[in-house]
Amino acid sequence: MTILLVALGAALGAPLRYLADRFVQARHDTVFPWGTFAVNVCGSLALGFLAALPADAAVMAAAGVGFCGTLTTYSTFSYETLRLAQDGSRFAALANVLASVMAGLGGGVCGMALARAVTG
């Protein structure tokens, strides 16, 4: 049953990641990967929120592992960072690493704080 919950969450997270990435990136005329950055920060916020809620294995399987796991993308982040560096945009590559790590951690912390505020 757990594998089906993960698959269901992933079936929603993966297309949303693609659509959100394309939506955001289309609005920026820059080499910086804003779309990937945005989905990774949003996914970190969502996972932080879920992690701070009372544990429910089914919700974590579907929403945490499946949805957030496919919404966020470490492989694309790595690829885009390497591509920026190889293309000579070393500042943008470094900015992507620093901003993504800091904003991802910050998103997780904010998600946890939001869950605690909502649940009292």
Rank of each mutant, 00 (worst) to 15 (best):
L8P: 06
R17W: 06
G43S: 10
A51N: 07
M1R: 06
L50Q: 01
A55V: 06
L50N: 00
A10S: 12
P15K: 11
N40E: 14
A46K: 00
L4T: 05
D56H: 01
V39W: 00
D56Q: 11
R17V: 12
H28S: 14
F23T: 07
M1S: 10
G35D: 14
L4D: 14
L45A: 02
A11H: 15
A14E: 13
N40C: 08
V41H: 07
D29E: 07
G48F: 00
Y18F: 09
V31P: 13
L19Y: 05
V6M: 13
V41K: 01
L19R: 13
T2M: 08
H28V: 11
F32I: 14
N40L: 10
A7C: 05
L4R: 06
P15R: 05
R22I: 00
Q25G: 09
P15E: 14
A10H: 09
A14Q: 07
V6S: 07
L12C: 02
Y18G: 09
T2C: 14
L50P: 09
L5P: 01
G13N: 10
G9F: 01
A14L: 02
A26K: 02
L45T: 12
I3S: 12
V31M: 15
L12E: 09
V24M: 05
L5N: 05
G35S: 08
P33L: 12
A38I: 12
P15G: 06
A51S: 13
V41P: 02
A10V: 14
A26W: 03
G9Y: 06
V41T: 12
L50E: 02
S44F: 00
T2G: 03
V24W: 12
A38H: 10
L12S: 12
P54E: 08
V31H: 10
A38T: 15
F32H: 00
L4W: 00
L53K: 00
L50K: 00
P33R: 09
R22S: 10
V41F: 07
V31Y: 04
L5T: 13
L19N: 14
G43H: 13
A46S: 03
R17C: 12
F49I: 03
A7P: 05
T2D: 05
F49G: 01
L4H: 02
V39K: 03
P15M: 13
F49T: 02
L19C: 11
